[in-house]
């Protein structure tokens, strides 16, 4: 095959690729602002709904005898809201926000420690016949 022909074909391909890339770039530019606005919320919503399903299935598998400990554990883990309070107390510029963050950390900590420990107490009581 003639090397010149190949060179011309390669050149044509390269041009085409460049044109496509430019097009894609232009498209991305138009889509990006829309996606940036919509994506985080949709992503969070997706995760939220999937987590609801996971929760639904996991909780139905909990034995009714352990429904009180279930409340204890869910109580403790819902205090993960402490994360938000920590961010406020540690990052906020405003003193008011820091103060609210501190109060949030304190209340949530009562729950974290109280919730997990009272659940542990409850669970330690559940013994089977074999163990006596």
């Amino acid at each position: 095959m003639n090397p010149n022909v190949i060179a011309v074909e390669a050149q044509a391909l390269a041009d085409r690729a460049q044109a496509l890339a430019l097009q894609a770039r232009a498209m991305a530019d138009t889509v990006a602002p829309v996606a940036a606005a919509a994506e985080p919320f949709l992503l969070l919503l997706t995760i939220f709904l999937l987590a609801c399903f996971v929760g639904y299935h996991v909780v139905w598998s909990v034995t009714p005898a352990l429904h009180s400990p279930l409340m204890g554990v869910t109580n403790a883990i819902s205090s993960v809201i402490v994360v938000g309070a920590i961010l406020a107390a540690g990052l906020a510029e405003s003193g008011v926000a820091r103060f609210f963050g501190f109060l949030g950390v304190m209340l949530a900590s009562v729950n974290i420690f109280g919730g997990f420990l009272v659940t542990r107490r409850m669970l330690s009581m559940f013994q089977s016949k074999k163990k006596g």
């Binding site: 969070l44 939220f48 409340m71 883990i77």
Partner: peptide, 25 residues
């Protein structure tokens, strides 16, 4: 709800778990 406000995944996931649990109970 707070998880959505501050865009925190952990809060959203945990909130959903607890919310579903309480609803089932």
């Amino acid at each position: 709800g707070i998880g959505f406000t501050i865009g925190n995944l952990l809060l959203i996931v945990t909130g959903a778990l607890v919310g579903a649990s309480g609803a089932i109970l």
